[in-house]
Amino acid sequence: MLFELETVGGPLGRRLAHRRESVAGFAWDELAREAKEPAASDARIVWTQSAFSEYASAASFAEIASGLLAVGAPIDLSATAGDFVVDEIFHAELSARVAMALGGAVPLEVDLERLVRPPSSTDALVRVAELVVRTSCVGESLTVAVLRASRETARTSVVADVIARIVRDEAEHAELGWTFLDWADDRLSDVDRAHLGRIAGAAVSSFAPLFTRQCAGTGTLGVMSCDAFDAVFAEALIHRVETPLRERGISLRQ
């Protein structure tokens, strides 16, 4: 199916209003006026993919929340993971608004039944650890770095504001991973840690091409130039992923 998003509104809209109050506050008209080709076309691709990535992240955090509840994790940890679902949906909507202000989404064929890679372990704790390492420790940590660099290329205050709003949440989303690993520290064996190192390595390999799509020749409207991308990604991998994992006894295995 082609990726599109819709809302019901009414009581549901009112319930979520305080979480998405800033949507109307962005100057979407200004963005529509300032966007020029070919940058706008590049940006429509990136922001459509971004909306889908955020949507997929919502599915990941829903699985994580469910997994945390299944292993009796601290209830505020489980609740926070559930709360992140709303954050990610909000980010998907913000990305969608940018794409629509630029003229509409590009056709993106998606399989919504396969948003989250199923964990491979049979142990409930390791299963949720796999999801957390993949989503928070790798995915969200790298996202924060890439988005911060993208903000520098925004050239319009609207796109910069949207990215800033998303980054604000993503930093917390990454932090959840480290909090989980610290809580689970005495519950994970050396074998488990070795397994999680392989999961992290596989996650880096699978996310890298996705992030690379965030770059383009134009380097504007929140799209990084491909020249700038590599250095940002490499630096983030070392300092935001590899080092904190190693501090928790998990070696990134590529």
Binding site: F3, E6, T7, V8, T48, E93, M100
Partner: peptide, 13 residues
């Protein structure tokens, strides 16, 4: 009967 609102729609070529 619920009506929905599109917030992301594909631009047609």
């Amino acid at each position: 009967v619920l009506t929905t609102t599109k917030v992301l729609a594909v631009a047609l070529a």
